[in-house]
Structures are given as C-alpha cells and as structure tokens.
C-alpha cells in the first residue's frame, strides 16, 4: 500500500518534469529570437530536470544514491542559470539585437 502511494507520487513528479522538458523544447523551436529562446531553455529545463530527479529520489528512498542525486539537483539549479546568463552576456557583447513586436 505504502509502496504504491510512493510510486504514484514519484510518477506524478516525473511526468510533470517531462512535460516541462517538452515545453522547453517546443519553446526552443517556436520562439522568434535568441533572447526569448533563452527564457524557454533557462527556466523549463532547470525545473523539468529538477522535478524528474526529485521524483527519482522519492522512488529510491533514502540512501547514498539519493544523496548523490540531491547534489546533482543542487548543482543543476545553480549552474544552469549561470550558463544561461553567460550565453546571453556573450550575445549582448557581440551586439545581437533583440526582436521587437512591430
């Protein structure tokens, strides 16, 4: 009984995470310019991967594997915005102009 509840909770986390990853990819393909694609990838990928790994932690229970997964989540949550910011800054320095609605 308890195992089923845990499995359902972790499945919900994984499915929501996958939904955000798919939305991020659609955003990467659909949005009109570089800076707005940055919004889709920087946010949706971070939360999608984070939610999926949290689902795996819940599925796995508490042991050393979960601690490693937790480190992975914290690292992704710190590193992904920094990487996004670095790419945006490089593009701005080169002089890429943002797209405006006419």
């Amino acid at each position: 009984m308890l195992i089923t509840v845990i499995n359902v909770i972790s499945a919900v986390f994984i499915i929501v995470g996958l939904f955000f990853i798919v939305v991020g990819t659609i955003g990467l393909l659909r949005l009109p310019d570089f800076y707005s694609r940055m919004h889709a990838t920087g946010k949706c990928d971070t939360l999608g991967v984070g939610l999926t790994i949290i689902g795996l932690i819940i599925y796995n229970g508490f042991n050393f594997i979960s601690v490693k997964l937790l480190f992975l989540v914290v690292f992704i949550f710190v590193a992904n915005p920094v990487a996004t910011h670095a790419i945006a800054r490089a593009a701005y320095k080169v002089g890429l102009q943002p797209w405006r609605r006419q």
Binding site: G24, T25, L28, F34, R37, M38, T41, D45, A83, I87, A90, A91, V94, L96
Partner: peptide, 9 residues
C-alpha cells in the same frame, strides 16, 4: 549562439 544554447539543452 542558437547553436550553443541548443548544445547546452
């Protein structure tokens, strides 16, 4: 830059 961001994703 679009290529870099795609590779990152």
């Amino acid at each position: 830059f679009n290529r870099i961001i795609a590779v990152n994703v």
